[in-house]
Design a protein around this nucleic acid. Structure first.
Lengths: 332, 332
DNA sequence: TTCGACGATGTAAGCCCTTGCATACATACA
DNA sequence: TGTATGTATGCAAGGGCTTACATCGTCGAA
């Protein structure tokens, strides 16, 4: 920087101003300094910058996993938005290490680098919550709703989509022949979807039996297992299934096919998330679209705003879901 | 830090030593300082640290995309390894912005933060190469082989796996009925696989016709299109196809099914990469396994070593591939 | 007893920027 | 011509840490 100043015959202060507040610099000087910078290939030292300004262009984002359609799509949305806002993302996944129970982003105190943290919490997890909350950083929570309203959060409104899906399913299947195949019972989304599932049946005057709501995990394997359970004792007529994500639905379909169950003749399925998987299967999977990329983007956007103004009131952004009808639900 | 020093009745130098070179500090003092740190919740300022030490625990990794099974798996491997080595990853994908033609990690000079850069180059791309190379950072290249041996690189040995796949295919399909369905022609991996494909046929005394090697893109859609081309004019007997990745294979299978082509009766397919997709389809997809996670891990590992010793000789790590036989190739 | 060596700690010089304040000059107005 | 404004720049004080070098006991050997 000193060299640049020397070449441009100005002080280092002016060089700094050229970079940060060019409108305070005379056009001619501006030009001279710019040339000097180019000539010397000068690049400001980010550490020194950070040291003086205490600003940072890194945002942390903590997800349960970074693998799979769902998270990687979320991440992509988040990343794009971050870039748009001039930030970069530092990604941590819980699976990462946590050998010592601490979050990846917290192990090496990398935290110091980041201006804010977005954390996705999909099921009750006190430790995660308190670590994230206790970091003393601007925070945005994705999915979790437990800890009051003091914090920015982005939520997915499962209701709309689930309701649509049920309406759709119930158009051709009686309520007592409908099932919900959930992920883990504690999972917030699974819980929300199960609830609406029950309500939809109730609206038809049917009281949901415990048998109709089953919990498992977000995996193809679980869907497959479920298909055996459901079709072990065949009864005539189609049954309807709302799966808590596309993988479960996919597994179910796979399993059903293996058992010779016709789709959508004997089984009408609606998945959740509308990942790429949904349009890959045959017949194509009806699914409730969850705007994952937007969830990521929204989280980043809110985080950036909170970073800019730490005192602003906590906000909740809710993104809604909607049914996408394809082949597996008996087409429309 | 000063406060800690005061509480522990030592100088800031000692505090620093407690954190960085504890073996230079008397046990008793060590303890006192540690307590002070805990009491005050002191955390060293990473910017100041970076400023003085010029070290950083961030590594950059630049991929063509961060989405999809392939890249997200690579990323996971890289991330895990990075963490193991005490680093964190800053991810950039080319798609990200590049509106101005510059790489994401280079736009805001975030580069200043990172200690080294791993960049995946899947097809000739001078601009990408020169930007990465010109950053003056420790560099590891994934996949690219064009620019001599002066640089660390991690390569995938397509040969072994491709050869196995061809051997497998040729066991039940005559050479003149074998096809290679590539990604983009310029893509390094596609090119390498196509080459070995030709060699395998040549070894059977068959001269590969241009018709047998087709280029497209790494997508399901392309595989689907290809199926129409291949089965437009049906001829009796099975054909064999080596696809350049699982998505293409998947599309092909889908398309073939739609045309009523029996698998593996009339079509024997081997995919590439062995992504999750492969075991999801029915029949399950035979595929050449590419150790993506290890590629990521290896890249990070090499990068970390180069960061530690910038003068060490350039290394090339080659990871090999191998065939995984499943249903689509007529099982073994 | 004296000196050298060594272990433990302190002193202070950077590392490279940003920015409040001061300065200097030019312009505009009275 | 003198003064008030404003614009363009420089000066210098940090910001929080690391580390070479200096200091000071202490202990063992001569």
């Amino acid at each position: 920087m000193e060299d640049v100043a020397k070449v441009a015959v100005v002080s280092t202060a002016t060089v700094s101003r050229v970079l940060n507040t060019p409108n305070l610099v005379a056009p001619e000087t501006l030009d001279r300094v710019h040339r000097a910078i180019a000539k010397l290939g000068y690049r400001p030292n980010v550490f020194a910058q950070g040291l003086t300004t205490k600003r940072s262009f890194l945002l942390g984002i903590l997800l349960p996993d970074i693998h799979g359609e769902f998270y990687s799509e979320l991440l992509r949305g988040a990343d794009a938005e971050a870039r748009r806002l001039g930030y970069h993302l530092l990604v941590g996944s819980e699976g990462g290490d946590g050998a010592d129970g601490s979050l990846p982003l917290f192990s090496t105190n990398i935290v110091g680098f980041i201006a804010g943290l977005a954390v996705m919490i999909t099921e009750p997890n006190e430790s995660l919550w308190s670590q994230a909350h206790g970091a003393g950083l601007p925070l945005v929570v994705i999915d979790e709703t437990l800890h009051g309203n003091g914090v920015d959060r982005v939520l997915v409104d499962n209701r709309a989509g689930t309701l649509q899906a049920m309406e759709h399913l119930l158009a051709s299947v009686p309520p007592e022949r409908c099932y919900f195949l959930g992920g883990p019972k504690e999972n917030f989304d699974t819980a929300a979807r199960a609830k609406v599932f029950g309500e939809a049946l109730a609206a038809m005057g049917h009281r949901t039996s415990t048998d109709q709501v089953r919990y498992g995990e977000y995996s193809v394997a679980w869907g497959q297992r479920a298909s055996e359970q459901l079709f072990g004792k065949r009864t005539p007529g189609p049954i309807g299934v709302l799966a808590a994500n596309d993988e479960i639905a996919f597994g179910l379909i796979q399993g059903a096919k293996d058992l010779g169950v016709g789709i959508p003749t004997d089984l009408r399925v609606v998945g959740f998330d509308d990942t790429r998987l949904a349009s890959l299967v045959r017949p194509q999977l009806s699914s409730v679209r969850v705007p994952m990329a937007e969830v990521g983007a929204a989280a980043v956007r809110m985080l950036a705003e909170r970073v800019r103004d730490p005192s602003r009131a906590a906000t909740t952004t809710t993104l809604s879901t909607r049914l996408v009808i394809r082949g597996t639900s008996g087409a429309a």
